[in-house]
């Protein structure tokens, strides 16, 4: 089967970051592969290793996003396509979905895997937006994925509100992946070395027939500023004999917090 993974470059949440006059400042230019996309790539690799087929990755971003695409190739994807956009246009999920849709209109695929959300925006929209634009069935928040050799159906286990749903989708389809589905492999040195020799296209978004003016018209929401999440102050920390501190706690819960 032919898999495409949509991958995104996101800032490293573990790296130093802060808000300064409404702007989000990343003190070190640490960028990485969106963790959910890493799981999507991993899952696609596992399936193709089992049932045959191959995995390509596609990424929309700035020039520097290249290294992130390379990481996916180092994991084992066979080909990368990077769709470069101008810096400064603040695309939202709808914008990215339009670009990806334009790309897939000209691509052959059985399954598109996305992350369930971007680690940076936590939006979780692009996948289902893209599926709609391509008029293909989809399932989101997958925690398990497989292909039924016999029927050729794509089997998705998705995490719902209560319990999990096991769904069958006909290819071509789209699945958004939770990082609970697997632990993505860390590229080996050999993998990294091979990644450099794998086919990698960098195409400008214009070659998909999209001008900046169009892109701007896709954008339906905009971020006007950032702020720190109002923090919680640490309360009472109790150390000592279990008996004593438990007594203390129950007393506090009962009389101070009144939650019992």
């Amino acid at each position: 089967m032919k898999f495409y993974a949509c991958i995104k470059q996101v800032p490293d949440l573990a790296g130093p970051m802060r808000v300064k006059d409404n702007e989000l400042i990343q003190d070190s230019d640490r960028l990485m592969l969106n963790a959910y996309d890493a799981s999507a790539v991993e899952e696609a690799l596992v399936i193709t290793e089992k049932h045959g087929g191959d995995v390509e990755v596609v990424l929309v971003g700035l020039e520097k996003a290249k290294e992130t695409a390379r990481k996916a190739l180092a994991m084992g994807a066979s080909k990368g396509t990077m769709i470069t956009i101008d810096d400064g246009l603040n695309l939202d999920s709808a914008g990215y979905a339009e670009i990806l849709a334009a790309f897939f209109k000209g691509a052959e695929f059985d399954v598109i895997v996305c992350g369930k959300q971007s680690q940076d925006t936590d939006a979780g929209l692009t996948g289902s937006m893209l599926a709609h634009k391509l008029q293909i069935p989809y399932a989101s928040n997958a925690v398990g994925l497989d292909v039924d050799e016999a029927s050729g159906m794509v089997i998705v286990k998705r995490q719902g509100d209560i319990g999990q749903e096991i769904i069958e989708l006909p290819a071509p389809c789209l699945v958004t992946c939770s990082n609970d589905m697997n632990d993505p492999r860390i590229p080996t040195l050999k993998g990294i070395m091979q990644s450099k020799r794998k086919p990698f296209d960098a195409i400008d978004v214009k070659t998909l027939g999209l001008e900046s003016s169009d892109l701007n018209s896709f954008i339906k929401t905009k971020v006007t500023g950032y702020r720190n999440t109002p923090g919680r102050k640490p309360g009472i920390k109790m150390e000592g004999e279990p008996e004593d501190i438990v007594k203390q706690l129950v007393d506090l819960l009962d009389n101070e917090a009144k939650v019992l």
């Binding site: 790296g15 003190d27 230019d29 640490r30």
Partner: peptide, 14 residues
């Protein structure tokens, strides 16, 4: 700041 500088220098190497 090394977290920043080293990464920047690595970029130059690339």
């Amino acid at each position: 700041l090394r977290a920043k500088f080293d990464n920047w220098l690595a970029g130059k190497v690339q």
